[in-house]
């Protein structure tokens, strides 16, 4: 049986098609999920893609977090469903309290779009097992509200528990505390990051194919 990976489309999602394509290139079956439908269509994992769900009204991710599909995702993520939030998806996961902290306006106030070097700090999550801890990858980053913030106690806890999954290298593009680009929950099934692995899966369109490992990681986990 093929592994089914759901990709949610919210009103204002932009990268849902790219995420579906990345899932397909990794060898799994992409399944389109709709924000207004609680049914997850028996998928084995879920991706919340980048974009501007609900126009970023109120706060980025704040309205998407209360959509019908998120009710089911929040419930199932708590019992182990692998969930990856990319960019706006990361914001939705923080708003859902599936991940700690919040994303705020870039400290320099500009929208940033660049190929970003990252270090994979934790290669034991559902979405990073294809990498080696300490491995450096380059994938695109594009956001206006990507500054990761949390109180010092939470940051210390994340560091102590190895839950900082990615860190920015060379430049901190948005003022994120402690150069944090992505984090995971305690169980390692929920991962969120600001950069976009789904845009780095083919030589033709990406700066590298370094992003493909996210999708092969979850596939490997689900098959084993």
């Amino acid at each position: 049986m093929t592994t089914r990976v759901g990709v949610v489309t919210f009103p204002g999602s932009l990268d849902d098609r790219d995420a579906q394509r990345a899932v397909k290139l990794a060898g799994a079956e992409p399944v389109a999920l709709w924000h207004g439908d609680k049914d997850l269509r028996q998928v084995d994992a879920v991706i919340l893609p980048g974009g501007f769900s609900y126009g970023d009204y109120l706060r980025a991710g704040a309205i998407a977090r209360f959509s019908p599909v998120m009710e089911t995702i929040i419930e199932q993520a708590r019992s182990g469903l692998p969930v990856l939030g990319i960019c706006n998806g990361f914001q939705v996961l923080c708003e859902s309290h599936l991940l700690p902290g919040a994303l705020t306006r870039n400290d320099h106030l500009h929208f940033v779009c660049r190929d970003q070097r990252l270090r994979v700090e934790n290669a034991a999550t559902a979405w990073t097992s294809a990498y080696a801890a300490g491995q450096e990858i380059t994938i695109p980053l594009k956001n206006g509200e990507g500054g990761y913030v949390a109180d010092a106690r939470t940051l210390d806890e994340l560091e102590a528990e190895g839950r900082v999954v990615f860190r920015y290298l060379e430049v901190n593009p948005n003022g994120s505390r402690r150069d944090i680009a992505g984090v995971t929950n305690a169980a390692g099934n929920v991962v969120g990051l600001m950069p976009h692995p789904e845009h780095a899966v083919e030589e033709l369109t990406g700066p590298s194919t370094d992003g493909l490992g996210f999708f092969t990681s979850v596939l490997k986990k689900l098959v084993s």
Partner: peptide, 13 residues
């Protein structure tokens, strides 16, 4: 309001 310890780049601008 943003908490006092949270940077407010818009306010600064």
């Amino acid at each position: 309001m943003l908490k006092p310890e949270i940077l407010d780049p818009q306010g600064q601008a």
